[in-house]
Design a protein around this nucleic acid. Structure first.
Lengths: 246, 246
DNA sequence: AATTTTCATTTGTCATACATTTAAAAGTCT
DNA sequence: AGACTTTTAAATGTATGACAAATGAAAATT
C-alpha cells in the first residue's frame, strides 16, 4: 500500500482510502482482519492522524470497514451485508433519478424489464409462501378506503414477493434500487378506484400465472402493467412540468 | 437538520452525515447548492471542525457532495455521474461476491438474466454503431495468440455493446456491477482454443440475431452462453474450493 | 473462585495553527 | 479604457497535541 505525497491533484485522505480500498477489494486484506491502528497508519503513510481518520471514514461510508473503540478495538474489514448493499444501491439510484439524470420512463422500463427477467426463475422456484404473500397483498389492495400511501406500500410488497420468488439475491437488491428510485414519483400519483381495479386485475393475473408456472404469461402481464404505470405517471409528470414553467 | 448530541450509540460524525444526507436525498438541498462552510457547520451542529470534516468525507465517499478549495469553494451537492454510480455499484457488487456473500452461480444467473432483459430493447434500438463494435470485438476474439487478459477485456467490450444497444442507462449501470463483479473469477479461467471457438460462435449468433432484430433468438443464445460460462467456471471454482480445504 | 479495580490501548472529539488553493478585488501599466 | 499583475480574503487540506470515552485484559481484592 503506497501513496504518492506529491500528487497534488488528489487529497491525501482520498489516496489513502483508495490504497486501503484496493487492498480490501483485491483480497490482500481478508474479512474480519484488523487494520493497523490510526497511529500506526499515520506512521506508515507519513501523514497525520486526522488525515488517516478522514480516509477511514470514507471507507466506513462504503461499509468497507467497521470501527470499534477500546483496547482491542480498531478498524475491521467488514463483511458487507445485504441490508448495507441495499442501502448503497437505493441511495445511488434515488440520486440518479431525483437529479433527473435519468427519466421516470427509463427507470420504469428498467424496473419492469428486470422484473420480467425474474419471472423466468420465479415461475420455476416460487413457493406456496410467495404466492400466499402476493394473494394477501392483492386482498389488501382491494380494500375500499385504503390510503394512497398504504396502497403504494402494498404494491411494493407484492412486487417484492414476486422478485423474491426468483430467489436470486443479486437481482433482488438491484431491483430494490430501481423500485425505490421510482417511489417518490409513484407517491405523487393519486390512484382512483378505477386505476386500482385495473392494477389489481393485473396483479391477480400475475399470481395466477405464477401459480401455473407459466413464465411467459407472467412476462406478458408485466409488460401490460408497465405500460399502464407509464400512462398513470404521464399525467403527473405533465402537471409537474407545467408547474415548473408557470 | 438536527442531531442529538446525547445519542452515545452513534458517532457524531455519522449523525451529522446522516442529517445532511437526508436533507440531500429528500430534496431539501438542491443540486449544485453550496453547503455552509466547515466552520459554519461546526457552529450550527456545535461540534468541532474535524468532526464536520469526517462527516463530509463520508458524504464525499458516496459521491453525494464534491468539495472545492479556495475562496468561493466549499462543499457542493453533487450531480452524481454515471461513472460514479458505476464505481459505487461495482465496489458493492465485487465485495458481495468476493466475500462469498453470494456465489458465482447466482451472479452469473443475474448477469445473463439482465442481459436477456436488455435484449428486448437492444433488438429494437441497436444502431449500426453497436453492431460494428460487436463485430470488431468478435474479430479480435478470433485472433490466434490472444492473451487470456485481452480475451476477457474484449468479452466485456462485446457484452457492453450489447447492453448499451438497449439504451437504458439504468440497466447499463446495474449490469456493470454484475459483470465487473464476476471478472476476478472470469480472469482465473484459462480459455482454450476450443472454448474460445464455442464462445465466438455464440457471440456471432447474437450479433446476427440482433442485426435481424430477432429478440427472442438473442435471448435463446444468451441462455446457451450463460450455461456454457457456468460450465467453464465450474472447474475453477472446484479447484479453488479444494485449495481452501487442503 | 469470583468479583472488583486498575491499566493500557484505541477510537472519538476538540482546539489551534499553518499550508494551499482559488477567485474576486485592487492595483498597475500601456 | 483596457489588459495584465498583484494582493487579499475565504475556504479546504494537513499537522499537532490534548483529552474523553470505551473496552477488554490483567492485576488485585474479597
Amino acid at each position: 500500500m503506497k501513496i504518492n505525497p506529491n500528487d497534488a491533484t488528489t487529497d491525501l485522505s482520498a489516496q489513502i482510502a483508495k490504497a486501503i480500498r484496493d487492498a480490501i477489494v483485491s483480497g490482500h486484506l481478508i474479512m474480519d482482519e484488523r487494520l493497523p491502528s490510526e497511529s500506526e497508519l499515520s506512521d506508515q503513510f507519513e501523514v497525520s492522524r486526522s488525515t488517516v481518520r478522514e480516509a477511514l471514514k470514507r471507507l466506513a461510508a462504503q461499509s468497507l470497514i467497521r470501527t470499534q473503540r477500546g483496547a482491542f478495538g480498531g478498524a475491521f474489514i467488514n463483511r458487507i451485508s445485504y441490508e448495507e448493499a441495499y442501502g448503497q444501491q437505493i441511495t445511488t439510484s434515488t440520486l440518479l433519478l431525483s437529479m433527473n439524470t435519468v427519466s421516470f420512463d427509463v427507470a420504469c422500463e428498467a424496473r419492469f424489464a428486470m422484473e420480467r427477467a425474474c419471472a423466468t426463475f420465479a415461475a420455476q422456484r416460487r413457493t406456496a409462501d410467495h404466492l400466499a404473500t402476493m394473494r394477501t397483498e392483492i386482498q389488501r389492495q382491494a380494500q375500499p378506503g385504503l390510503s394512497d400511501e398504504s396502497w403504494c406500500a402494498s404494491d411494493i410488497a407484492f412486487h417484492r414477493a414476486l422478485v423474491d420468488a426468483a430467489q436470486n439475491p443479486i437481482m433482488s437488491y438491484q431491483l430494490a434500487g430501481a423500485v425505490e428510485a421510482m417511489q417518490p414519483l409513484m407517491n405523487m400519483i393519486t390512484f382512483t378506484a378505477r386505476n386500482r381495479e385495473t392494477i389489481i386485475r393485473l396483479h391477480s393475473k400475475i399470481a395466477d400465472h405464477l401459480d401455473n408456472k407459466e413464465a411467459e404469461k407472467v412476462e406478458e402481464t408485466l409488460v401490460n402493467l408497465s405500460d399502464y404505470t407509464k400512462t398513470l405517471a404521464y399525467d403527473v409528470i405533465a402537471a409537474k412540468q407545467k408547474h415548473k414553467e408557470g
